[in-house]
Design a protein around this nucleic acid. Structure first.
Length: 584
RNA sequence: GCGUCCUUAGCUCAGCUGGAUAGAGCAUCGGCCUUCUAAGCCGAGGGUCAGAGGUUCGAAUCCUCUAGGACGUACCA
């Protein structure tokens, strides 16, 4: 459809030029001025060209320009041009557009929608970045969903994408769960308790917070532990390694369940030292300064901000120190053209400072860093608060969703048909979750209502899966009954209903939607387009019998259309991490 | 205080670089299963696009102000 659009821009331009010529006017850069739109209702045409931008050139009212241009255009072979007030509306030659499009989709297959828009670009995407003191919660799931999805979308746009994680495995917060374990742990392990490692460690983190309310020295003890640890205390180190492994193993299990993966894991425990060296180097160079209190700081007055600690007065490193080291290590490993940090909006200040610090340290690639600042997930009652126990745990949520999906399968008596009901339920849960998280623009805060938000009806992931499963089943039946339709011929002119034409237009728009999602780093564009497509198919499927159309050629042609729709759904599912189900 | 962002139907959200009558889903009400999966389809009601100015032929969209909200402004991450 892109080629159709540019073709029509040329046609309209020619018409306008001719009309202008008749009036003795000359127009410049006419093609750049032409705006292509979609008419608000399909019966008004397929493409719309508003004439407002030419009012000044013509010194005429837009409707009059439209009339003149339409007259000049006459009846081009590519379609029909009609005026509608100030608009020129184009009705495309449906048969030829359909033929071309369905052939293109079939040829491209899984690659339909892919482009070379970002060809040659190396893009690193950082996301997830869990702390090793507690399990993942709903906020992480949104981060993971966005990070994984934009990685896939950028890849589809031709970029060389490297997905990276950063394990926040050091810092005072880690010491807190360790300290609580030392005090109250009684040697418990994931094996001895049967509790998933990340949850077990998280329980001790909660315990620390309870204990610190009773014992005012708790915070100081945690700080002391951090100092001992950075000095290399072997006992602390051993405990750290053990508890870290528990957490990371647990978190990796959650990644596997949700279809998230990384090309490279970075660990703050590996990068904080190089970050510290970097800070000391920067101190020598005069980029940083030593404050009266002994801490090493960056003066940000040149960008209208205060100062920021780069290294604590006791010599231990902060978040910033580690992120400096990590960024530098990453650019060495993978000289990116762009590094996208998928991190919550609450850390905007941090990244502003980080990027600024790297620039001042003389790293030219500091300009290629980008903070994809996404919004928070809130509950109807407000913020999720771990202290009040209102945090929605990732594993619990997945388990609940899977249970709901399984109950639904049983209620609909689809266990047999579906094959492995548990596996299917798990995939439905993922679809519900990922679609819910990705249908919203990343940068906006969103509200998660556990009771209502994850329904399986309406504008949801399972609805998409359902439509694709139905198409798949129908196509399988077609294959089984192949002899019945032997000798059938594809006749695109038979696909002449409005429902079919709507589908054609949606299929043709898919690649541009993917490109837009890539340039805006916004998966919700893909999600919305998938919904529109599924919805349009649903209407078509309801109105237009396929296998029972009564006309072999019509059946064959509608099958071809359905195949293309299924291809778009499958390709799009891949981009937003929704599993395709052949049966549901 | 300062900075950044948000405010569209009862609720949750779309609405692309300004363009024709602002759209979905949920919820409410009413239809549709001897025919390809009813996790579906069709229809109805529901809007001063927070408010006020401005720019423009034209504003939910751009600018300014006001109100409400979120986040940040840590030797937490």
């Amino acid at each position: 459809m892109d080629s159709v659009k540019s073709q029509w821009i040329k046609i309209i331009a020619a018409g306008l030029l001719e009309a202008a010529g008749e009036k003795g006017l000359t127009l410049e850069n006419i093609e750049d001025k032409i705006v292509v739109e979609r008419p608000p209702r399909s019966e008004m045409g397929d493409l719309a060209f508003p004439m407002f931008p030419f009012a000044k050139d013509f010194r005429m009212a837009p409707p009059a320009i439209a009339a003149l241009a339409a007259q000049a255009l006459g009846t081009p072979s590519e379609g029909e041009v009609k005026t509608a007030g100030p608009y020129l509306n184009v009705f495309l030659n449906r048969t030829s557009v359909t033929r071309e499009l369905l052939n293109e989709v079939e040829k491209a297959g899984d690659a339909y929608g892919a482009s070379d828009m970002l060809k040659g670009q190396k893009v690193m995407v950082e996301f997830s970045c869990p702390n090793t003191n507690k399990p993942l919660h709903l906020g992480h799931l949104r981060n993971d969903a966005i990070g994984e999805s934009i990685s896939r979308i950028l890849k589809a746009a031709g970029a060389d994408v490297k997905k990276v994680n950063l394990i926040n495995n050091r810092g005072v917060h880690i010491c807190k769960s360790m300290l609580a374990y030392q005090k109250f742990g009684e040697g418990k392990t994931p094996e001895s308790t049967g509790i998933k490692g990340d949850h077990l460690v998280g329980d001790f983190y909660v315990k620390f917070n309870q204990w610190s309310k009773e014992d005012s020295t708790a915070e100081e003890q945690a700080q002391e532990m951090l100092r001992q640890w950075e000095k290399g205390d072997p006992q602390i180190n051993e405990l750290w390694e053990t508890m870290n492994r528990w957490t990371i193993d647990g978190i990796r299990e959650t990644y596997e369940k949700t279809g998230i993966s990384f090309d490279t894991y970075y660990y703050e425990s590996d990068t904080y030292l190089s970050g510290r060296d970097e800070v000391l180097k920067g101190l020598e160079q005069g980029v940083f300064y030593k404050d009266e209190d002994g801490s090493i700081r960056l003066d940000l007055s040149d960008i209208g901000m205060d100062t920021k600690v780069m290294l604590r007065s006791d010599g231990t490193s902060v978040y910033m120190t580690q992120d400096l080291g990590t960024a530098i290590a990453r650019h060495k490993d993978f000289p990116f053209d762009r590094l996208i940090y998928v991190v919550g909006a609450e850390q905007e200040y941090h990244f502003k400072v980080l990027f600024h610090a790297l620039k001042k340290l003389g790293y030219s690639w500091a300009d290629m860093l980008y903070h994809l600042s996404y919004g928070m997930v809130n509950l109807p009652e407000g913020k999720m608060k771990s202290r009040e126990g209102t945090v929605v745990d990732a594993d619990d949520l997945l388990a609940d969703l899977t249970k709901m999906a399984k109950d639904e399968i049983i209620a609909k008596e689809r266990e047999e048909a579906v094959g492995d009901a548990d596996e299917t339920a798990g995939k439905i849960a993922l679809a519900a979750l990922h679609y819910f998280l990705l249908q919203v623009s990343p940068y906006k805060d969103m509200i998660f209502n556990p009771r209502e938000s994850l329904s399986f009806n309406g504008n949801t992931g399972p609805y998409l899966q359902y439509m694709s499963a139905r198409i798949n089943s129908m196509l399988e039946k077609y294959q089984e009954r192949k002899e019945e339709f032997a000798g059938a011929e594809l006749d695109y002119s038979l696909l002449n209903s409005e429902a079919e034409w709507e589908l054609i237009k949606l299929i043709s728009a898919y690649p541009s939607q993917v490109r837009q999602a890539a340039s805006e780093l916004n998966p919700s564009i893909v999600a919305a387009h998938l919904y529109d497509t599924a919805k349009a198919f649903s209407r078509f499927y309801h109105d237009c019998p396929i296998l029972g159309s009564g006309d072999k050629n019509l059946t064959r042609s509608r099958v071809a259309l359905s195949e293309a729709v299924l291809q778009i759904l499958k390709n799009g599912f891949e981009l937003v991490n929704i599993p395709f189900l052949s049966k549901m």
